[in-house]
Structures are given as structure tokens and as C-alpha cells.
Nucleic acid binder design. Structure first.
Length: 1091
RNA sequence: GCCCGGAUGGCGGAAUUGGUAGACGCGCCAGACUCAAAAUCUGGUAUUGGCAACAAUGUGCAGGUUCGAUUCCUGUUCCGGGCACCA
């Protein structure tokens, strides 16, 4: 009786399916175990041998846990929305739903071949409306929630509205300080303000709090294709398809406010059983840093208004490039000067004179100055306590162009912290009392808002309302070494501070940066940048430093501006060298002029009051000083940004949102799912909108239009592990009873490529659902196992250039050749099957000639990524057909550690197949038939069995599946040597083998007379008594080099061992008569004699 | 560029906590069975020298710690993954 794997595997797969042996339910008394594979995207290329690696590992673990008495949830489904299907639709006109369904069928067939124990009754597909109904529902919960920082959890937006109605937002300031709401003067409003806001303003304010919110973000825009491109569709600044230019464009986008969860995402890593590497990657992604936000005044600080004239004059003497950025009459560089300012103060208009008489001498309770220089222009009146500017506009301000300039000017002043109010001459002349009252009220409002803000922040916030550029630094100790400042090219101030002389250069540089992807900007080794012409003042030293822009500073991180310390930062150092900016040394002898000092455990020199201090102490003192002087504040910063949550694509979940007059309104939850409408064209909509924008009969609804963006790939995959627990529920995404039972995923297997994307997003969603009370745990994946990648081993043929002639690899040096991928399936080892090659690609090479070596054509070999385009993919179906699923499963595991990447080599599979046949022969002989017996096992046989039980159990628990396969081989080899065919030994062995090779185990299990399935058997229990040894063969080393072996009783004492060892002939030979200095004896390990 | 991981015979890999480097399998070599082949079985196989016993060398490279290092530390090279719109 032969091992007929084909019949066996087919028969059992059918039986398992018919009897539903993998169906599980949460109402049992057993302990649960949730084993999950990362959600696969069903690609059109089908499975290659790399894909099932993790699935086999999880299948082994799931079966093992079931044998150990657990109720195991082990589901599978499809992350079925995605770009490739849409791209395929664009190219072939096949609807993504159709190609996706087809791909899923292929996928499923391939999976079924391998004999997995999935509970297919729980399958989910993200593109199925019954699934994405709940993705949309969760999105609405995100939309209807905000993050209460005080409570450190998400809460419903209605609760926030209640708070606003009661106390305004003083206790819950707007999370994003860079918010832009046109009707909102400051970020803080009172309850009365809130009630006075119109609906649009109220909704804009709420949008600033929602966990899913709308904002504007940059995308890769390709004008020629009329579409937004993914990062990997952009190569070297042009589109991958067609090579058209790609620039950045701002589009309205949805975002998830994941930054509010940064701290919890960080600290909760401690509760997870993940590899340190994985935790480290997430930590780096979150990028929490503590440092200081420091304000550098721009050239002249209004606070130092009295010194200004002198400074400017000095600057002008020193260099021609006086900072100049003005508007109309304020222009300093041309026309306006401080002489003019003085003159104007002496010659005020009638209205100014009138107003001044009512303002001077603290008449309003606030001290005002008139004709006061502010940032290189002259304000008519300014209150330096409240940062209020009062302008009296003459007749020419009616001119539209001047109004535009005034508006720009006001916006700039607002950015640097001023509030501007404007009055006409007539207003002042007609009713000066009213004007004064307005000014006084505004001052009061600013003052109370400032106080509220300080109260909200829990400390004074000196940066609010102060002029200058804010930089973020984690090294405040290096502030005496600042030689220049770099702004992100997209920094709002760039336009305003650029001098006329530098305008052209800056504009050219900005054009260049606009073509650069963020990745390119970070990775660029070449140093690029541009001087703005402006100078800033180091608040500690008073030193004037030039302000540059460069692509290496990103707008999204920190404040979008850095203080550059060339002697203490490598990138700054290279920048300074490249642009010839003088470098200040603050590290004494440590800085050699060639490399920046990156060491953080050094002493700071030439730095005023921190000279001689270590980095940490110096930083502390600088921070304290800056805080005391209200120039900087301590800040915790995160590298992580809010997650972009929309795509201008068709094949994704539609947003359940309707826009009415610019306000986003959620769809009623009872109207979900909002189904994706059918389209005939996948072409983008106008202005970069998604294809949905083209279907007006869908987008236009009474009173508004639908959102035309769709959700990104990670929407559906951020919560799918919850749906598996209760996949058919129509009432809720997952019944709380089910999620309470199944709880966290106990083992999650997938590749490291998901380290920071999927794994962070699903952690966030879990935390939100937890905060809102829908589930009872706040981390989705307790234990994470990362599978390595199986690489392909490519084969090459060498075509003689210009001829239809191929030369064998060993002879290719003699010719001028081109290297061409040959399909690995036509190659046996390295020998090419010439016949198959000639038929390949419809006979493209049918007429080719071959130059052979030793009568063979030998191919070149290279390890590459496994991919169809490299003709190095191996289809698991072929291997299963040839060797069976059990062999395939065990061979995939046998290749090496699951976590490690390794190249595929089909050759070795024979060895595993031989092992299974050898196992079979312990039960049945080809000639003799049944050989297994009911005889009593010997001590030796029991030792083999129990050593194997221990090894397999240990290895399976620690996911060392490759060594477990070896252990099976060793056991079968040993039992064969012992000629052991005893049921009492073989039966437990079959149970051990079940997770690894379920079909053969099941078959032989039934041959041994069992009726129930082997998965319901009890796992064998290891008993130490069978494997105890009384002595051990010790390696004996002299001076660390092993020289001989000695068998010594395990309970020998140090003294006994020493006597035995010194009496040994080999030992004495190597000691060459010298006395031993020391004898190291480690019980059960080794002996070392030191001479 | 930044972050994470990896490197051991001809090949995949083993050595679980610093303790006999190369388990197990492939490949290769030799032998048995066979008319022959396949399958199967037996033995050998890190490198160098030697008939052998044995000796020297050896875990990417250069150092260090230790009685002892594939394992720990410092530096370095190469390869793989990720870097926010592939999934």
C-alpha cells in the first residue's frame, strides 16, 4: 500500500468541508484563541509560493491550539478595494467588481489546495456593501467624535457642543494651532461667541475637532493625465505612465486625527508582545520628541521698537541688502525711510491728530504709540500690550488694488501676532467716541482671550501674539551656535519676507521644490537652498542670522522652520559649507571644522551662561531662560501627521457625506450602506476629483452634493478583525458579546511592510471604538509575528548582441551579450530545457541557436523579488499537484525561520517528500502491506517519542517551525533505525504531526482504528522520566580549544570532574606538563582547562 | 538620507540563556538492488595538509570584552524591507 497523497488529500479536504469541522462558535466553555493572517489583497497575478508562508504558519498554530483544547477562531477574507483593480479597469475596461471577484475565486481555489483550516463561513470582502456599510458607519462615528484631551479619550461631538454652549472653548482649545477659520479672530471663544456664530462658522469650528475631518492637503497632481498619482506612480518627478510632469497641488481631503492618539499609540506598545524592531519602527514613526519652540524676531522686533532705527541704519551700512518687504506706502527699501516716518509723525493728518488726542496718555486704559515702526513699516497707532494696530485709511484706500495690499499686510501682521483695525478718516471725524470705544473693546477682547488661552494651556503662552519666526529644536543647548535659519519652502512667511533682490531666485527655487516629492526631498544628498534676503535675530545673542529656505526642512514637521547649528548637526554643517556660511564653534577642540559634533554627551563652549556645561544641563538652563523671558516654550512634538483618508478614485468606499453650502453633513445611519454607483468610465473628474464626480445623477441630491472622494485601502482593513467575530450581523458591526469573547487577536501573522501603515491605523480605530464603548479592549493584536519574504531565484540566458544566438553562462565572457530573464519553470536547476525555451513566448526564440558547454545550456542565477515580470514565480498549485499539500506545507516551513527572508529553491522539496514516504512506511510496506503492530514499546522507542513531543511542543510554541520539521525527520529516521512500527509510539506521533501535515496524519489516524477526526484528539503529554540520562559526553577544552570528549556522570562534583579530567591522556598531552590555572566546569555543558 | 532587519559549507539552514560550529534537508561522491533506469537503501561530504591518527584555519570585514564569542560591545561593508496615495 503506497502513500497516495493525491487521493488522501482530496478525500479529507472534502470530508472536512462537508462536516464543517472548522466552524467555530463563541458560545462554548473552552478557552478561546484567535489566530489571524494579515488581510490579503487578491491580486490578479494569483498566489506564488511566497504568499502562503504566513498562512501555513498560522494554520499550524491554529491546529496546534485546537489540539491543546482551545476554541480557535481562524478566519480569512479579502481586502478587495484597491488601486490595481481600478488600473486594470482603466486599461481593459473590465469593471473592478468583476476582476476582483475573479481574482478572489482564483485565490480561494489556490488556498483550498493547501488544506487550511479556515472557517470560511466567516469570510468577508471589504468591497461587499454588507461589509462596507459598517466601514461607513465607523467613519461616521469618527466624524461625530472629538478627542477630549482632558479625559484622554474620544467623545461624541454633541458633548463638545454642550461644552461650547456652557463655557466656550477655553478649556478645550482647537487641536491644530494652524487652523484657518475666516470668521474667527482668535482661537478662543466664549459661550456667548459660540451662540452668536452662524451655522457655517459653528460647523467650521467643529470640523477642527472631529476625529475624521476635512482639510486641504498636497497631492501628486499630473496635469497631462488629469489625475492624482500615488507616490509609487511617480518616478523622478514624472508620472510612471507616460513620463508626464507631476507637481504638488492642494486638494480638499479627509483626514483622521490620529495625532491625538500619538501618546497612547506610543505608550500602549508596552502592553504588546511584538518584536522590539516592530515597536521601534512604530516609535520612530510616531516620533515623539521633547524640545523647545523658540521665537526668533525677524530683523527688528516691535518689542525693540526704540532700537530699530539704529539697527536698520547699521544694517544698511553693513550690507546693501536691507530686509525689505513692504506694501504700497510702507515700502522701506524704495521710497519709505525712517526719515519719512519721522516726518509723518510730525505731520499727521487731521483725523490722526484727532484720534491721537483721545488715545494718548493711556486715555483708554491702554498705552498707545503713534507712527510706530512695525516690521519695516509704520503703523499709525499701536498698542504694544495687546498688539493692536490701528490704521487710519485715507481716500486712496478705496482703490481695489490698495485694498488688496492692505489685506495682505493685515494677514501678515496677523501671522506674526497683531490684530489690525482700520478706520476711515470720515469715521474718525464723524464720531471719534465710537471709534475709541471700538478700539477699547477690541483691546479688552484681546486681553481676555489671551488670558483664557493661557488658562487653557495651563501656563503662559508667550509665543501667542509675538512677532517673528518660530523654530522647533530638540537641542536648545546649541542656541549659541546658530548661524542661520532654514524655513520650509512652503512656509507661509516665505513670500512675505523675501527681499526684492532675492525674489526671482526664491521663486525659481520654489518652482523646483514644487516638482519634488517629499521622499525625494528627504533623501536628496545634493544640497539645495535659497537665501530669502531676510535676517532674523538670535534672541540670546542678538546676532543677525540669514534666513534661508531649503527642501530638507518640511512644512509639516514642528513649526516648519529650524535654527541651523552647523557645528552640531551634520546636515546643517554641509549646508553651511556649501553656501559659505561662517560656522560658529560651540564645542571647543571637539569640533575639527570637518564634521559636525553629533555626540550628545559633550560639553558646550563659547556659549555665554552655559559655557562649560554638559548638553542636558545646558539645554535645561537655556529652556528656563527662554521661558523666563517669554521667548520660547517647551513643546512635545510628534513626527506623525494626521492620516490622509481620501482618494480621488472610484474603487473604494464612498463617504456617507453630503455637502450643503460648503458644510459636510453626515448621512443618516439608517441609509447605510451608501452603495458605490456603477460607472462606465474610470476617468478622473474635473479638477482632479475622483471618477464619481462625473456621475451627476448620483452626486446631486436635493439641497446638496455627495462627497466624490472615496476611502483609502486601509479603511476596510482597519477593523476587519472585528467583523470576523460576527460576520453576518445586520444590526451592528460586531455584537459586543462576540467581541468580548473573542477579544484581541492572540496571534497575528504578516509582513513587516505593514509595520507603520495598517498596524498603526487599526490600532487607532480600535482605540476609538474602545473609547466610544463599542468594544472592550484597546489594542487589536496582542502577539505579532512577522513573516519574511520568499525571494525568487531568477534564471538568465545570454543572447549574443544583434544575433538570435544564446550562449551558455560559462562561456558568456567570450561574447558581447544581453542578459534576458528566462522562465524558471523551463530550467532544471541551472540547466535550460531548450525545447521548452523554443516554444516559450509563442515561439519567439524558435529559430534560436545555442552555444552549449558540455552539451548543456547553463543559466545564470540571481536572487530577486519574486514577481511575474522577472519570470521567477513558482505557483504552489504545481507543487501541490506534484508532491501534495502536506509536502508543500512542510517544505515551506522547512526552508528556514518564518521571520527571515530567503530565496525559494524547489529542489529541496524532494527531501521533505521522502520524509513523508518514510513515515508512511512505518505503517505500511509496499510489499508486506500493514506493518504497524500493537506491541509494547521499548524504553529506547519511548525516549525517541518523548524527546520529539518536547521538541515539537517547544518549537511550535516559539514559532520555530523549521526546526520542528527537522525534529520530525530525526524522529522518523530514529524509529526506522529501531524498526519501530508500534501503534503506541506512532499514534501520538501522528497527533504531533497533524498541524504540519494534516492530511497524512488524518489518513493514518483512521487506519489505526480511530473514528473521530485527529484534530479532536488530545495532544500527547511529555513525560520527563522517559528521557532522563545519567551521564553526558562532555567536550573537554584546553585553553578554550576542544581537544577531547569524556563521558562523565551528570551528578559529578567539581572535584570529581577535575580528577577525572587531569587523569585523561589527551588532556595531559595538551597541558604539556604545566599546572592547571583553573578548571571551568559547567554542568551538562562543557569542561575547560586553563593552563 | 533616515528608520528596521539580515550576512554561518556548493545551497536552504541548526546551534533556544556566552559553552562540542555546521543538526536536518538539498546537491555532490562512492556503494547495494536492477539487463538498465527510476524509486529505495548504506556510507562519505566546511577548507587546507596528511594513507590515517591528527593538526591548522573557519560564522561578511576590522577591532574589543571573556577561561570560552555565530551569540555581547565598537566601527565598517554589502543585501532586503519601510519612509505617509501599492496593499
Amino acid at each position: 500500500m503506497e502513500y497516495n497523497f493525491k487521493a488522501i488529500e482530496k478525500q479529507w479536504q472534502q470530508k472536512w468541508e462537508q462536516e464543517g469541522v472548522y466552524k467555530v462558535h463563541h458560545q462554548t466553555g473552552k478557552p478561546k484563541c484567535y489566530v489571524l493572517d494579515m488581510f490579503p489583497y487578491p491580486s490578479g497575478a494569483g498566489l506564488h509560493v511566497g504568499h502562503p508562508l504566513g498562512y501555513i504558519a498560522s494554520d499550524i498554530f491554529a491546529r496546534y491550539k485546537r489540539l491543546k483544547g482551545f476554541n480557535v477562531l481562524h478566519p480569512m477574507g479579502y481586502d478587495a478595494f484597491g488601486l490595481p483593480a481600478e488600473q486594470y479597469a482603466l486599461e481593459h475596461g473590465i469593471h473592478p467588481a468583476i476582476s476582483t471577484a475573479r481574482n478572489i475565486n482564483t485565490f480561494r481555489k489556490q488556498l483550498d489546495n493547501i488544506g487550511f483550516c479556515y472557517d470560511w463561513s466567516r469570510e468577508v470582502r471589504t468591497c461587499d456593501p454588507s461589509y462596507y456599510k459598517w466601514t461607513q458607519w465607523i467613519f461616521l462615528q469618527l466624524f461625530k467624535s472629538w478627542y477630549n484631551r482632558k479625559a484622554q479619550k474620544a467623545e461624541s461631538i454633541e458633548k463638545l457642543v454642550e461644552i461650547f454652549e456652557k463655557e466656550g472653548n477655553a478649556n478645550h482649545p482647537i487641536p491644530n494651532l494652524k487652523f484657518q477659520i475666516s470668521n474667527l479672530k482668535s482661537g478662543i471663544f466664549a459661550a456667548s461667541d459660540w451662540k452668536g456664530f452662524d451655522e457655517a462658522t459653528q460647523q467650521s469650528v467643529l470640523m477642527e475637532y472631529r476625529l475624521a475631518y476635512c482639510s486641504y492637503g498636497e497631492v501628486n497632481w499630473c496635469e497631462a493625465l488629469g489625475t492624482v498619482l500615488a507616490n509609487d506612480e511617480v518616478v523622478n518627478g514624472v508620472s510612471e505612465r507616460g513620463g508626464y510632469p507631476v507637481i504638488k497641488k492642494k486638494l480638499r481631503q479627509w483626514y483622521l486625527r490620529i495625532t491625538e492618539y500619538a501618546d497612547r499609540l506610543q505608550s500602549d506598545l508596552n502592553t504588546l508582545d511584538w518584536s522590539d524592531a516592530m515597536k521601534e519602527m512604530q516609535t520612530n514613526w510616531i516620533g515623539k520628541s521633547t524640545g523647545m519652540e523658540i521665537k526668533f524676531p525677524l530683523s527688528i522686533s516691535p518689542r525693540r521698537g526704540e532700537e530699530m532705527e539704529e539697527n536698520v541704519a547699521k544694517n544698511r551700512e553693513k550690507k546693501e541688502a536691507t530686509p525689505g518687504f513692504g506694501y504700497a506706502k510702507y515700502k522701506v527699501g524704495s521710497g519709505m525711510s525712517f526719515e519719512n516716518a519721522k516726518r509723518m509723525r510730525k505731520e499727521p493728518t487731521e483725523a490722526e491728530r484727532l484720534l491721537w488726542s483721545s488715545l494718548k496718555g493711556k486715555a483708554t486704559g491702554y498705552k498707545f504709540r503713534r507712527q510706530h515702526p512695525i516690521e519695516n513699516s509704520i503703523a499709525d497707532f499701536v498698542c504694544l500690550d495687546t498688539w493692536l494696530i490701528v490704521e487710519i485709511d485715507g481716500g486712496y484706500h478705496d482703490h481695489p488694488e490698495q485694498q488688496k495690499l492692505d489685506k495682505e499686510r493685515d494677514a501678515f501682521l496677523k501671522e506674526i501676532g497683531f490684530t489690525t483695525v482700520r478706520f476711515t478718516n470720515e469715521q474718525v471725524m464723524d464720531n471719534v467716541e465710537k471709534v475709541i470705544k471700538t478700539i477699547k473693546d477690541t483691546c479688552d477682547a484681546i486681553k481676555s482671550a489671551g488670558a483664557q488661552k493661557r488658562a487653557a494651556a495651563g501656563s503662559s503662552s508667550p509665543l501667542q501674539g509675538e512677532a517673528g519666526v518660530r523654530v522647533y529644536t530638540t537641542r536648545p543647548d546649541t542656541i549659541f551656535g546658530v548661524d542661520f535659519m532654514v524655513l520650509a519652502p512652503e512656509h507661509e512667511l516665505v513670500n512675505q519676507i523675501t527681499t526684492p533682490e532675492q525674489k526671482q531666485a526664491v521663486e525659481e527655487y520654489l518652482t523646483y521644490v514644487n516638482t519634488r516629492s517629499e521622499r525625494e526631498r528627504i533623501a536628496e544628498k545634493k544640497i539645495t537652498g535659497c537665501f530669502t534676503g531676510a535676517y532674523a535675530t538670535n534672541p540670546l545673542t542678538g546676532k543677525q542670522i540669514p534666513v534661508w529656505i531649503s527642501e530638507y526642512v518640511l512644512g509639516g514637521y514642528g513649526t516648519g522652520a529650524i535654527m541651523a547649528v552647523p557645528s552640531g548637526d551634520e546636515r546643517d554643517h554641509k549646508f553651511a559649507r556649501f553656501f559659505n556660511i561662517p560656522i560658529t564653534n560651540i564645542f571647543g577642540a571637539l569640533y575639527n571644522g570637518d564634521n559636525a559634533v553629533m555626540d550628545k554627551n559633550v560639553t558646550i563652549y563659547d556659549s555665554g551662561f552655559i559655557t562649560g556645561l554638559k548638553v542636558n544641563e545646558a539645554a535645561e538652563q537655556v529652556m528656563t531662560w527662554l521661558e523666563d523671558n517669554e521667548i520660547g516654550e517647551r513643546k512635545v512634538n510628534y513626527k506623525m501627521r494626521d492620516a490622509a483618508f481620501s482618494r480621488q478614485r472610484y474603487w473604494g468606499e464612498p463617504f456617507p457625506v453630503i455637502w450643503k453650502n460648503g458644510i459636510a453633513w453626515p448621512l443618516d445611519e439608517n441609509k447605510l450602506p451608501l452603495e458605490l454607483p456603477h460607472v462606465d468610465s474610470y476617468k478622473p473628474g474635473p479638477e482632479g476629483e475622483g471618477p464619481l464626480a462625473n456621475i451627476t445623477e448620483w452626486t446631486v441630491v436635493p439641497g446638496g452634493v455627495r462627497e466624490t472622494n472615496t476611502m483609502p485601502g486601509y479603511a476596510g482593513s482597519s477593523w476587519y478583525f472585528l467583523r470576523y467575530m460576527d460576520p453576518h450581523n445586520d444590526e451592528i458591526f460586531c455584537d459586543r458579546k462576540a467581541s468580548d469573547y473573542w477579544n484581541q487577536v492572540d496571534l497575528y501573522i504578516g509582513g513587516t511592510e505593514h509595520a507603520v501603515g495598517h498596524l498603526l491605523y487599526s490600532r487607532m480605530w480600535t482605540k476609538v471604538l474602545y473609547d466610544l464603548g463599542y468594544i472592550g479592549f484597546n489594542e487589536p493584536f496582542k502577539k505579532l509575528l512577522n513573516q519574511g519574504m520568499i525571494q525568487g531565484s531568477s534564471r538568465f540566458v545570454y543572447r549574443v548582441r544583434g544575433e538570435n544566438k544564446f550562449v551558455s553562462a560559462g562561456l558568456k565572457e567570450q561574447y558581447d551579450t544581453d542578459q534576458i530573464h528566462a522562465d524558471v519553470n523551463m530550467v532544471d536547476g541551472v540547466e535550460l530545457d531548450i525545447g521548452a525555451f523554443k516554444k516559450w513566448r509563442n515561439g519567439e526564440y524558435a529559430q534560436a541557436e545555442f552555444i552549449l558547454e558540455n552539451g548543456k545550456y547553463i543559466c545564470g542565477v540571481e536572487v530577486e523579488k519574486m514577481s511575474k515580470s522577472k519570470f521567477n514565480t513558482i505557483n504552489p498549485d504545481d507543487l501541490v499537484a506534484k508532491y501534495g499539500a502536506d509536502t508543500f506545507r512542510m517544505y515551506e516551513m522547512f526552508l528556514g525561520p518564518v521571520e527571515q527572508s530567503k530565496p525559494w529553491d524547489t529542489k529541496g522539496i524532494e527531501g521533505v517528500h521522502r520524509f513523508l514516504k518514510k513515515l508512511w512506511r512505518l505503517f505500511y510496506d509496499e510489499q508486506k502491506g500493514r506493518v504497524w503492530t500493537q506491541e509494547q514499546p521499548s524504553a529506547e522507542e519511548l525516549k525517541v517519542l518523548h524527546r520529539t513531543i518536547k521538541k515539537i511542543e517547544d518549537d511550535t510554541e516559539r514559532f520555530s517551525f523549521n526546526t520542528a520539521v527537522s525534529a520530525f525527520m530525526i524522529a522518523v529516521n530514529e524509529l526506522t533505525d529501531l524498526q519501530c512500527h508500534k501503534k503506541e509510539i506512532l499514534e501520538p506521533l501522528l497527533i504531533l504531526l497533524t498541524p504540519y501535515a494534516p492530511h497524512i496524519a488524518e489518513e493514518l489516524w483512521h487506519h489505526l482504528g480511530n473514528d473521530s477526526i485527529v484534530l479532536d484528539a488530545a495532544y500527547p503529554v511529555f513525560e520527563e522520566k522517559y528521557i532522563l540520562e545519567s551521564s553526558k559526553s562532555y567536550p573537554v577544552a584546553i585553553n578554550g580549544k576542544t581537544r577531547t570528549e569524556m563521558s562523565i556522570a551528570l551528578d559529578a562534583t567539581q572535584q570529581q570532574v577535575e580528577e577525572l579530567v587531569l587523569a585523561n591522556e589527551t588532556v595531559r598531552k595538551w597541558m604539556e606538563g604545566k599546572a592547571p590555572k583553573k578548571i571551568v566546569y559547567v554542568r551538562n555543558k562543557m569542561i575547560n582547562v586553563v593552563v
